[in-house]
Amino acid sequence: MSPCGAPNARRSRMTPFRSILSGLLAGAATLVATAASAAPPIRDIVLVHGAFVDGSGWRPVYDILTRDGFKVSIVQEPLTGLDADVTATKRVIDQQDEPVILVGHSYGGAIITEAGNDPRVAGLVYIAAHAPDAGETESGNGKRYPAIGRDAITKTADGYTYIDPARYAAEFAADLPPAEAAFEARSQGITAASVFTTPIVDPAWKNKPVWYMVAKADHIISPDLERMYAARAKAQQVVEIPGASHSVYRSHPREVAALIEAAARGSAL
């Protein structure tokens, strides 16, 4: 064989081998993807409410998730300080037997940002929620992205905050039935002002997968701030709900539950 022909012969002999190798690799990748897609979703869900509400607001989402076979636990936050609220959340996480999807609404986002470092937490879902970085506070970020209804929050003489009941429906729950919004206004959780000025120390969203829902008509957290949080956390999925108030977790429970279930499937992979 001529010197010029030898390289061509070697290439010819290697071509079938490369084809076989490529086929094996493609097959292996398909098997891995198939196995991953078949992985059962995480079943344990922990729901965390925010300021000016309590855990009962999660009932519509709870009903959907439990109907779909998930085990759902709801934290009742004391709302006396970020550390106390994180501790209350960890107490509920400790009760779970399996990996957990941790869901936070509003100030609950700051809570899960710290509590989400628990090794049992597999994924984080933020529903119109704060997701501050290390050293950031909710109030500081709120000044960078002012919300329409921020001046409806009133401070008590002993350092707690609440939303003026006369403005609660318009600013916090505009898309709820009037009777529900009125009841929520009178049953709201009075919240320590310190929770809004306590810096985050170790944001879990830097190490855990994130899903995010933006309420496009939110008057309590600016939708632009919500979008910034979602982009910065490199959210796996971002869902924007047109016309949704800050009470999106109550007014759009199907969409919220669907996002949580997507997180349960995605985190299982």
Results as ranks from 00 to 15, higher is better:
141 N>F: 05
16 P>W: 12
245 S>W: 03
183 F>P: 01
104 G>M: 12
14 M>K: 11
213 M>I: 15
17 F>C: 11
243 G>E: 07
182 A>D: 07
266 G>I: 11
197 T>K: 02
126 Y>D: 05
63 D>C: 01
4 C>T: 12
37 S>K: 08
32 V>F: 13
212 Y>C: 03
50 G>W: 07
79 L>I: 10
164 D>Y: 04
57 G>C: 05
28 A>M: 13
163 I>P: 04
128 A>M: 07
58 W>G: 09
212 Y>W: 09
35 A>L: 15
16 P>T: 10
190 I>R: 13
137 T>Y: 09
185 A>Y: 02
234 K>S: 11
85 D>S: 00
10 R>V: 12
188 Q>E: 14
42 I>F: 02
31 L>I: 15
47 L>W: 02
88 A>Y: 02
38 A>E: 10
124 L>N: 05
128 A>S: 14
70 F>E: 04
9 A>I: 13
53 V>A: 10
269 L>M: 05
118 D>L: 03
269 L>W: 09
19 S>A: 14
129 A>D: 09
13 R>P: 04
263 A>T: 10
173 A>I: 05
131 A>G: 05
38 A>H: 12
137 T>Q: 09
269 L>G: 10
138 E>W: 06
27 G>F: 07
153 I>F: 08
139 S>N: 08
223 P>A: 06
128 A>N: 02
19 S>N: 12
132 P>L: 00
98 E>L: 00
83 D>K: 08
92 V>T: 06
41 P>F: 04
65 L>N: 06
38 A>W: 11
218 D>S: 06
225 L>R: 06
232 R>W: 09
54 D>I: 01
262 A>F: 06
197 T>A: 06
264 A>S: 14
101 I>C: 00
206 K>I: 00
62 Y>K: 11
96 Q>M: 15
88 A>I: 07
236 Q>L: 12
188 Q>Y: 11
134 A>H: 07
254 R>Y: 02
147 A>T: 13
206 K>W: 05
21 L>W: 08
19 S>H: 10
81 G>C: 06
232 R>A: 13
